[in-house]
Computed example of a mutant assay.
Amino acid sequence: MSNSGLPKVPNHLTLSILAIFLCMPTAIMAIINSARVNRKLLENNYQEAVLASERCKKWLRWSLILAFIQWPITSMILSSG
């Protein structure tokens, strides 16, 4: 069974790698899930690939949220010293 008739599933690998500069722990989880997308597609498991892609997006969102929380706090600490 080939997945040629199914829509393409984005793996978000580039964004996951760039997210390392935002928040490393959540970016690592995003990278792991983006790698799972391609592996699941090779196994012809479309539903699991979509699930891994959604999990990757979730970890990317958390990277962004935590970065916006962390950066102001860090800058306040560094500017007060």
Rank of each mutant, 00 (worst) to 15 (best):
M1Q: 06
S2L: 02
N3F: 09
N3K: 04
N3W: 02
S4R: 14
S4G: 00
G5Y: 12
G5P: 01
G5L: 15
G5K: 11
P7A: 03
K8P: 03
K8M: 10
V9M: 04
V9T: 01
V9Y: 02
P10V: 06
P10N: 05
P10L: 02
N11M: 00
N11C: 01
H12S: 05
L13C: 09
L13D: 05
T14D: 14
T14E: 15
T14S: 11
L15H: 14
S16D: 08
L18A: 07
L18R: 15
L18G: 04
A19V: 02
A19N: 03
A19W: 07
F21K: 12
L22Y: 15
C23D: 07
M24L: 15
T26K: 07
A27F: 01
A27K: 00
I28G: 05
I28Y: 03
A30N: 08
I31W: 06
I31Y: 03
I32R: 11
N33M: 07
N33W: 05
S34Q: 09
A35H: 09
V37Y: 00
N38Q: 13
R39Y: 03
R39H: 06
K40D: 04
L42Q: 13
L42A: 10
L42E: 13
N45A: 04
N45I: 00
Y46D: 01
Y46S: 04
Q47D: 09
E48A: 15
A49Q: 01
A49I: 00
A49W: 00
V50M: 05
V50Q: 08
L51F: 07
L51R: 09
L51N: 12
L51Q: 14
A52C: 09
A52I: 05
S53M: 04
S53C: 05
S53A: 01
R55V: 05
R55A: 11
C56R: 03
K57V: 09
K57G: 02
K58R: 13
L60H: 05
R61S: 12
W62R: 14
W62H: 08
W62N: 06
S63Y: 08
L64W: 10
I65K: 06
I65E: 11
I65M: 10
L66D: 12
A67Q: 10
A67M: 12
F68P: 02
I69Q: 02
Q70K: 09
P72T: 15
P72V: 10
I73T: 10
T74H: 11
S75P: 03
S75C: 13
I77D: 04
L78I: 09
L78N: 08
L78F: 14
L78C: 09
S79N: 13
S80E: 06
S80P: 04
S80D: 06
G81Y: 10
G81H: 08
